[in-house]
Simulated scan of single mutants.
Amino acid sequence: MIRHAEAMLITASENTRLLDLLRRLTGEQWQATTDCTGWTVRDIAVHLIASAQAQAHPLEFARQLLAGRRLGGAHWVDGLNQAQLLARTGWEASTLPPLWAQHSAAALKARRRLPAPIRALPILPLGTGLGVHIGWQSLGYLFGMGFTRDVWMHRIDIARAAGIEPSLTAAHDGRIVADIVDEWSGRHGQPYTLTLTGPAGGSFQAGDRGEPQSVDAVEFARILSGRADGPGILRHKLPL
């Protein structure tokens, strides 16, 4: 499991990697469709910046949450995401990289300073998504690696849509994937033998009679998140 201090170091690195990717995008790439239904590359970038604004300022978090609840949706996060986009329709693509740099830095500063007793408060009603019951979680679930996983997964979405090979390393991306495997494994509780290939890959096992599966590490994350389908033990999902 990734603890808070390590999570903040990973977050700083992930924020930089996303910024580097956003700076590479051309006009057409900003309008490319992504694996996220109904969202373009621009939409994903706007969502991530809005999320960073909410992380940095509790009142902005509350404002987005209330706006999202008025819009409704299958899950309260759906309304929240829609509200983020509707409130920022005037943002030009050219402004998004500097906006990300500004607000991701403010969000990271706020997350680093969040006291441990506050992070431990179990006040997030995450409920059920993709058929997985997450239930009530602590603030630390999101303000540790939760938001960072969101950025990482969306960096993959943007790279795929734009036709750009994402920057992946074992030390950074492999650590994020291993943390995802840890939670996924604990939630479904079944034996498995898992070989994840590619720069972010590794070998994982639980139990003695685990069903063997081999898949690219990024594809594994896409399968878990519902962006793609997978056989056997990979049928168990994890919202990312």
Rank of each mutant, 00 (worst) to 15 (best):
D150F: 13
A120K: 02
M145P: 03
A162W: 04
R149F: 13
A170E: 10
A206H: 11
T128S: 13
E165F: 05
S138P: 06
I158C: 08
S203W: 13
L194W: 04
S138D: 05
H133F: 01
L139P: 06
R111V: 05
P191G: 03
S203L: 15
P125W: 00
S203H: 06
L108M: 06
S94P: 03
S167C: 07
H133Y: 13
G207M: 04
T95I: 13
V177H: 07
L126F: 01
S94C: 13
A159K: 06
G186F: 01
P117Y: 00
E165H: 15
E211Y: 07
F204M: 12
G131L: 10
S167E: 13
D179A: 12
A116R: 15
P125F: 01
I118M: 09
A161R: 08
G207S: 00
G140R: 01
R112N: 08
T128F: 00
I134P: 12
G201N: 11
D208T: 14
L121E: 03
T148Y: 13
P122R: 10
G198M: 08
Q205V: 08
G146P: 04
A159Q: 00
V181T: 07
G210K: 09
I134C: 14
I134F: 15
A106D: 15
P97E: 01
T128P: 04
F143E: 07
F204D: 06
D179F: 03
S138L: 05
H188C: 08
G210F: 11
A200E: 02
R113T: 10
H188T: 15
Q137S: 15
L168A: 05
D208P: 09
I158E: 12
A159R: 07
A178K: 13
A200P: 03
Q190K: 15
R209V: 05
P122Q: 06
Q190A: 09
L196Y: 04
W152N: 10
Y192N: 01
L114G: 11
G135N: 02
L126K: 06
G210N: 10
L130A: 01
A110H: 00
V132S: 10
A106L: 15
V132Q: 11
G144K: 07
G144T: 05
R113H: 12
D150E: 13
M145C: 12
T193L: 14
R175A: 14
A107H: 00
K109G: 11
G207T: 07
G189R: 14
V181R: 11
R119A: 03
P122C: 14
F143Y: 07
V151K: 04
L99T: 08
T193M: 15
W184P: 02
Q190Y: 10
L168G: 12
A110M: 00
T193K: 14
D157A: 08
G135K: 03
T197A: 03
G210M: 13
G131R: 12
W136S: 14
A107M: 07
S104V: 11
A162D: 05
P97R: 02
A107P: 11
I164S: 12
R160N: 09
R111Y: 05
I176F: 06
A110F: 06
L130T: 02
D150I: 14
E165P: 05
A200D: 04
A105W: 08
G144A: 11
S104F: 03
V151E: 08
L124H: 14
I176T: 04
A178T: 11
H154F: 09
G131H: 00
A116P: 03
L124E: 02
E165D: 05
V177N: 01
I123A: 09
A105I: 09
I158N: 05
A206W: 03
